[in-house]
């Protein structure tokens, strides 16, 4: 009897335990610490089930985009030598506003908002 009640209570208690990802839709993600990224560099982070690209343009200026190339869904990267975003698959390039500079991508990259809270960099979907 007690065991059966325990088997009912267990899921309930587990249910109330806050899950690791606390937001229903991933609208925001902590991308890392400010000091982890040098100016004029970028890194790929996981944003929901898609990659995102965070770029530190200068000491204070940050940019973030969906890292999914609009051509064939490869993951784009930041190139410090050209200060552009580049897709290795077919040489598509985007500028730091996400606009297509050259190559096959038909559409610009979706830009995300970046906020620095203390020493944490937070990326969020724009409303």
């Amino acid at each position: 009897m007690l065991a059966s009640i325990a088997s009912f209570l267990y899921p309930v208690l587990k249910f109330l335990n806050p899950p690791l990802i606390t937001e229903a839709a991933v609208n925001e993600v902590v991308a890392g610490k400010v000091q982890d990224l040098k100016p004029n560099s970028g890194k790929i982070i996981k944003f929901g089930n898609k990659p995102a690209l965070l770029v530190r343009v200068s000491d204070t200026e940050w940019k973030a985009f969906s890292a999914v190339c609009t051509h064939l869904n490869c993951t784009v990267q930041y190139r410090d030598s050209t200060e552009q975003i580049w897709c290795a698959c077919h040489n598509g390039t985007y500028d730091l506003n996400g606009k297509v500079v050259s190559g096959p991508p038909p559409n610009p990259l979706t830009e995300y908002a970046v906020n620095v809270r203390g020493d944490e960099v937070i990326i969020s979907r724009r409303a």
């Binding site: 990802i21 929901g48 089930n49 898609k50 990659p51 869904n73 490869c74 993951t75 698959c89 077919h90």
Partner: peptide
């Protein structure tokens, strides 16, 4: 089930096919 990590990884797989 939670598989978002693997889904992101799968994107890399597709990239390799393109490459």
């Amino acid at each position: 089930m939670e598989v978002s990590e693997a889904q992101v990884r799968l994107g890399d797989g597709n990239e390799n096919l393109i490459k």
